[in-house]
Design a binder for these strands. Structure first.
Lengths: 245, 245
DNA sequence: AATGTTCTGTTCGCTAGGAGACATAAAGGC
DNA sequence: GCCTTTATGTCTCCTAGCGAACAGAACATT
């Protein structure tokens, strides 16, 4: 058993949808090697170009994949929660990627050593199919991010980001300063302030010092660009669990 | 043998780097099912959400993966040439994707039925590894496109696009109107005119009615944003052949 | 309560690029 | 050659978002 399980009896691996979707035999074989670890806010799960010793299956946390440029400017490429895993480069064969993975909302994840993951990926067809389908959903999210970056306003992108993030948590609130959201979206903090102000004035959200509460999700979904729906639809189609976007 | 081979004796499957990198046994097994087909300019290799009956291994053509939004605005997500294949959704398990694939530079490709590809993907580890590594390179390109869309000027993006395209052809020239480039980059045609004008004034390229010639590639590489180098480095690292970017 | 720190809100000037309207200019059909 | 089509170059106006500076407000620390 993973060593932290006793300390956190309320966590079980099946909170991660990929693990939950495994056939019983595969799941049981993986179980002894899954280790529950806390992912604190801001932690770099992996660095650009760095070695991946583990993959992480988030339960209640969110991890952002983002790319930081030479001049310090950054942009989020995709976001991963309980519907997926962090570290696809391991089974894709590249071992590393040029992007970083940063914890955006603290919580717990089950980690698995890269060695065991690779072994299981080769041996278990259900696991392999699951991970590849997840990767395709991630690809869709990245592609849509590229399109959204090109064509949509900060306000629309903020709405998309909020909805994608909330789909990965179990509430309608999240803790995140405007500064950090700006880093994720690759825009200025002031731009986020302005966009959030509009949404707040419209009564869709409530913002207060790093704490956002979505008050009217249906209206927020009306205002978001089509990118959110595209990503969600593909995720629902490709992934087990039908919860994640 | 593929039916068009006789008509085009100068084409051989190994012009595609993925096919060329296969072990002899795997290559021979695939060979009878590879069919050389022309891909004319503008052809939609597949449509958004459509069924994929074949995958395509380009030899001397370029295929753009692009996403078209409801309002008609579009953006290129990635570009595929002789280093890769079109249709990764087949072996990733999703069967379809929300993006389109459009021929950007006419030429020939070897196509393989989806049924045979899936069979071989399951049975041949070398093929599987090759395709997954290629997919990771494609992911890098998509991620970098997202970042580039966010932070860089039209001129820089045009330079990136030119270099990525030329890396996939066998010359320093390509046929493409500014209008089409604008569609790919998701910007206005006037913006491309202006950016191309600057590059032309600087003596880096020559532009004339749909025909672009790169006159000074080293200087163009100096002027491009870092995104080009990131994509190229990852492609060189991940892919066989060391030619493609 | 005093103080420093961290967030958020707001301002002003500036620029890249979008929208649209045209003006050339080269190629092609006949 | 003439005329149409297609490609490119160039204007004008306008807006979103950047850069920078700063003010206030909430929170933390002592």
């Amino acid at each position: 058993m993973g060593k932290n399980l006793a300390a956190s009896p309320s966590f079980i691996p099946t909170q991660n949808h990929l693990l939950a979707a495994l056939p019983a035999a595969d799941y049981q074989r993986l179980l002894p090697d899954l280790e529950l670890v806390p992912l604190p806010l801001g932690m770099a799960v992996y660095e650009s170009g760095g070695r991946l010793d583990y993959v992480y299956f988030p339960t209640d946390c969110i991890v952002s994949l983002l790319y930081v440029m030479k001049d310090g400017a950054s942009a989020e490429i995709a976001v991963v929660g309980h519907e997926g895993l962090v570290g696809i480069a391991l089974f894709m064969g590249g071992e590393s990627t040029p992007s970083r993975a940063v914890v955006q909302s603290a919580g717990y994840a089950y980690r698995l050593s890269s060695k065991i993951l690779k072994r299981e990926f080769e041996q278990s067809h259900p696991l392999q199919h699951l991970l590849l389908r997840y990767t395709q959903a991630l690809i869709t999210q990245m592609a849509q991010t590229a399109v959204c970056n090109r064509h949509h306003s900060v306000e629309q992108q903020l709405a998309r980001w909020l909805l994608l993030s909330l789909d990965r948590l179990f509430s309608n609130e999240l803790n995140m300063t405007q500064e950090l959201i700006a880093n994720m979206l690759g825009v200025r903090r002031e731009g986020v302030t302005e966009a959030a102000g509009k949404l707040q004035t419209a009564g869709l959200i409530h913002y207060s010092r790093g704490h956002i509460k979505v008050l009217d999700r249906p209206k927020l979904e009306e205002r978001v660009c089509e990118c959110y729906a595209v990503v969600k639809r593909e995720s629902d189609r490709l992934l087990p669990g039908r919860i994640a976007a």
